[in-house]
Design a protein around this nucleic acid. Sequence first.
DNA 1: TTACTTGCAAAAGCTTTGCCTTACT
DNA 2: AGTAAGGCAAAGCTTTTGCAAGTAA
Lengths: 132, 132
Amino acid sequence: MKQTRMTRQKKIILEVLRSTRSHPTADWIYMEARKQIPNLSLGTVYRNLNQLAEMGEILELNYGSSFSRFDGNPVPHYHLVCENCGRVYDLELPVMHQLETSAAAVSGAEIRGHRLEFYGICNHCKREQYQQ
Amino acid sequence: MKQTRMTRQKKIILEVLRSTRSHPTADWIYMEARKQIPNLSLGTVYRNLNQLAEMGEILELNYGSSFSRFDGNPVPHYHLVCENCGRVYDLELPVMHQLETSAAAVSGAEIRGHRLEFYGICNHCKREQYQQ
DNA sequence: TTACTTGCAAAAGCTTTGCCTTACT
DNA sequence: AGTAAGGCAAAGCTTTTGCAAGTAA
């Protein structure tokens, strides 16, 4: 595995991200970091964010999936996303509406819905791996 | 509110989506639907998917958010997304690892993690609305 | 000195949009 | 007939990538 280096850019990008609770976009991080490195490029921000996420230093929300998937079933249900093949499965878990009550209690927000997704290796891929 | 019309295109797009359990992408739906309407355009697929999702007929996964957000806190936790202002908040709800056990049980998959997000109106926006 | 990183700019990939035509109701 | 919707193609946006130069280790 390739080793990584701690550059000035990476350090500042990480500092910017750690210093806010706002879950910023790459572009916001870029603009903030440019206050310290005026000629920083957006490509560098993306490269570092991806690397940091891969190392587990930060979390990428929205899972970088660059495109939407659609589900013909509008009734709320949960999903399993296979990290190997990318397939998305419906789960036969009952929807837990009480989670929304808890979320409302701790946040004070008016909750209108929730999404629960599991990530892992699906049955199909597990079998293939065992054969390797 | 604008009224909507049931066109041949929309009907077939919906049929394609309802006839699979695979959570397809817009492009896959496009290719399938083209088997029945060869000169269908991708723009039409997107327009209809967006309209159907808005009407609650179908579900859009990944929430169409066209960009990723990053979180400097790599420790698992849950989020609240405000549907009004778009802000993302960390929730002080304990992470429920037992959900993964249940998901593994019903799916047979090897679960490596999960994501739980709540959607609604945050405290901040609730106040603003009351003032209106 | 080695090879990972950066800046820059171009390319890529998904989605939206403008415009004129078609066709539901 | 009136107007939402379609087809096509261009534009928009976020993210990735190729390449030469820079710089951690």
